[in-house]
Amino acid sequence: MKTFIDSMLALMCYQVSSSKKKTIETESIAIKDFISFILEKYPVVTDSILIRNITFLIQTYDNSFNDEERLLLKQAFKLISDRLREKDAIRVISYEKYNGVVLDWTSPKQSKKILHAIEYPVPSTDFLGANVIEFAYKNTRQQFINDSKNSIVKINLLNTEVAVENEEPLVYMPRHATPAPAGIVF
């Protein structure tokens, strides 16, 4: 009877410990802040730092990244390769225009593979019409590593400040002033 009670107690303790909520840290940044984010968030690694399991969600709005975006992303991922360890894992998923996994779980030390995926993004076609962000969270929970830092970093390519084109600037004119002839600027 004592063995049965001990077994039940051990089973209950196991269930409680295994049913702890899996915490996934989430960050959302603009592409212009990506390099400074990496410098701040991912210090040069030591053995005392927990294993990192990072999913990068990159917003897409065209067939591929423009030259500036590509350059920033490649520099940022080179920096990640220098700052993370072989036992860490990263994944790149695109969303919005093109939905899908651009780079499946890989070591950040495989910089050539990562840079190739950024240079020539070819998302998998399995996600047409799917909610890729939801997939990213679900998959990160499935790949969850206990006693590690599991995170999702959403990189926004579109600037939040949208320039208004073809709109005349507002000019203050005193009430009784005569407007200047067209083409003359004071």
Rank of each mutant, 00 (worst) to 15 (best):
M1F: 01
K2E: 14
T3W: 09
I5H: 12
S7Q: 09
M8E: 11
M8V: 08
M12G: 10
M12Y: 12
Y14N: 09
V16K: 07
V16L: 05
S17I: 02
K20S: 02
K21G: 03
T26W: 05
E27I: 00
E27S: 04
I29V: 15
I31L: 14
I31T: 12
S36W: 08
L39V: 06
L39G: 03
E40T: 15
K41V: 03
Y42I: 14
P43G: 00
I49P: 02
I54W: 00
F56I: 04
L57A: 11
I58Q: 00
D62P: 05
S64Y: 10
F65G: 03
F65S: 00
E68I: 15
R70P: 00
L73P: 10
Q75P: 10
Q75A: 02
A76H: 05
K78Y: 15
K78A: 12
L79Q: 08
L79N: 06
I80N: 00
R83V: 04
I93W: 02
S94Q: 06
Y95R: 10
Y95M: 07
Y95Q: 10
Y95A: 06
E96G: 08
K97D: 10
Y98W: 10
N99D: 04
N99H: 01
N99E: 02
V101M: 03
L103S: 11
D104C: 12
T106R: 09
S107W: 15
P108D: 02
P108Y: 06
P108F: 07
S111Y: 15
S111D: 11
K113H: 01
L115T: 15
H116Y: 09
I118P: 14
Y120N: 14
P121F: 00
V122E: 12
V122H: 07
V122A: 05
P123Y: 00
L128W: 04
V132F: 06
V132N: 05
I133K: 01
Y137L: 12
N139A: 06
N139S: 11
N139G: 03
T140L: 00
I145P: 01
K149R: 12
L157G: 03
N159D: 11
E168I: 11
E168Y: 09
E168A: 13
L170Y: 11
R175K: 09
T178E: 07
P179I: 07
P179K: 08
V185F: 10
